[in-house]
C-alpha cells in the first residue's frame, strides 16, 4: 500500500534520514522503532508531506505522492496522529473532530463516524463541548486518534502515541490501535516503546542514525539480540 524507496530528507545541511526504504502492506500493522533522534518523526513528516524529501520516491496505492501537500495526502487517504498529539487547544472536542473530517462533505457519514468515535472513546462524549486544551494527556491522545479516524483514512500513521502517558493508558491505546486495524485500517506506528509496538506489529523496521539497520516480523525483532540489547534492556554481551 505504501512503498518508500531510497528516501532522504534533510533540515538545511543536516541529513535526518538517509536512503530509507520501507513497505506497509495493506491491512497490516508496521512498526518503525528507534531511539531519540534516529529520524522517526522526520520519516513520518516526509510521508505526510510536511517535509519534502531531497531524493527517493513514495508511492501510495500505486500513485506517486512525494511532493504532494499535506491536505492532498489526507484526501488520498492518509491520516497522521502527530507526535505530541497536536490537539487544537482553543477549539472544543467536537470542533477538533469536525476538523478531522474537513475534507469530507457527506454530512450523514460524518455524523455516523462521530457516533462511532463516541462509542469507542466514551470519555470524549462527556467532554464534547470542552476545549481540547483542558483534556488530560491520555484523553488528548484518544482525541488525536479519533480526529485522525474522522477522515476515514486507509492508512493511519501514529507518531509516538505512548509518549508521556501512564502505562495503563498506554496499553489501552495499543488495544485501540489493534481494534482499528481489525476494522480494516492499515497502520504505520512509530514508537520508542519498542516492546509494546513490536508485540502488535506484523512487521518492524529499526531506525538508527537516519538509516534502517534491521527489519523483520514483530516476533523476529523481539527475539533479536541486537534489538534486545539496544531497546529492551537486555543483558550486555560479555
Amino acid at each position: 500500500m505504501l512503498e518508500i524507496r531510497d528516501v532522504s530528507t534533510s533540515y538545511g545541511q543536516i541529513k535526518a534520514i538517509r536512503s530509507i526504504s520501507l513497505d506497509v502492506p495493506q491491512g497490516k500493522i508496521v512498526a518503525l522503532i528507534g531511539a531519540n533522534g534516529a529520524g522517526k518523526t522526520t520519516t513520518m513528516k516526509t510521508i505526510t508531506g510536511l517535509l519534502v524529501p531531497d531524493s527517493g520516491t513514495i508511492h501510495f496505492e500505486g500513485r506517486r505522492v512525494d511532493g504532494l501537500k499535506p491536505h492532498q495526502l489526507v484526501k488520498a487517504g492518509l491520516a497522521l496522529v502527530p507526535e505530541g498529539r497536536a490537539i487544537l487547544g482553543q477549539m472544543t472536542v467536537q470542533e477538533n473532530l469536525e476538523m478531522g473530517a474537513f475534507q469530507r462533505n457527506d454530512t450523514a457519514g460524518i455524523r455516523e463516524d462521530m457516533e462511532k468515535m463516541m462509542s469507542w472513546f466514551p470519555i470524549l462524549k462527556e467532554r464534547l463541548n470542552q476545549l481540547g486544551g483542558t483534556l488530560s494527556g491520555g484523553q488528548q491522545q484518544m482525541l488525536a486518534i479519533a480526529r485522525a479516524l474522522m477522515s476515514r483514512p486507509k492508512l493511519l500513521l501514529l507518531d509516538e502515541p505512548s509518549m508521556g502517558l501512564a502505562p495503563i493508558v498506554v496499553s489501552d491505546i495499543f488495544k485501540t490501535i489493534q481494534e482499528i486495524n481489525r476494522e480494516g485500517t492499515t497502520v504505520l506506528i512509530v514508537e520508542q516503546n519498542v516492546k509494546q509496538a513490536l508485540k502488535i506489529a506484523d512487521y518492524g523496521y529499526v531506525l538508527e542514525a537516519g538509516q534502517i539497520v534491521l527489519s523483520g516480523t514483530g516476533q523476529e525483532l523481539l527475539a533479536n539480540e541486537r534489538v534486545k540489547e539496544a531497546y529492551l534492556g537486555g543483558r550486555k554481551v560479555q
Partner: peptide, 10 residues
C-alpha cells in the same frame, strides 16, 4: 492556532 496541525487534518 496551528498551521501544521491544520494542514495534516486536510
Amino acid at each position: 492556532e496551528n498551521n501544521e496541525t491544520a494542514s495534516i487534518l486536510g
